[in-house]
């Protein structure tokens, strides 16, 4: 299971580095690995990633072309929001170095404090 996770990470890395959508064959060629992977393995991994929503695909001729659903930065921001801001998950599963104020909380606070000098300077 963990091996599969690593392979997913490697495939996503290839897709994120590429400017264009890639076919299974392209991904296979760009994967740097100790052992040679089977075409069907990469196809299965891409299929899984598609099912989980990590990648989008479109038919190009007789093969699918895959590209990431979101940039790595966007996906990271979303994952951190899921983990830290939504629900009580953060409190339950992780130990924080120090709780800085989350985006949502600071928005709430800004709202509660009324328009301040910081307002309007936000990106």
């Amino acid at each position: 299971m963990r091996g599969l996770g690593e392979l997913e990470a490697a495939v996503m890395d290839v897709l994120w580095r590429s400017a264009d959508p890639l076919r299974v064959r392209d991904v296979l060629d760009r994967l740097v690995r100790d052992r040679k992977l089977a075409y069907t393995t990469v196809m299965t991994v891409l299929d899984n990633l598609h099912r989980k929503g990590w990648v989008q695909r479109e038919m190009d001729g007789r093969a699918y072309r895959y590209r990431p659903s979101a940039s790595r930065e966007e996906a990271t921001a979303r994952a951190l929001r899921d983990l830290l801001d939504a629900s009580g998950d953060a409190e339950a599963v992780l130990l924080h170095f120090a709780r800085s104020v989350s985006e949502r909380e600071s928005a709430v606070l800004r709202g509660a404090l009324g328009p301040g000098p910081g307002e309007g300077r936000l990106p």
Partner: peptide
């Protein structure tokens, strides 16, 4: 290491 501008550190058990 995550690519995020939020200054964060935590550990998962």
């Amino acid at each position: 290491w995550l690519r995020s501008a939020r200054p964060l550190a935590f550990s998962l058990g």
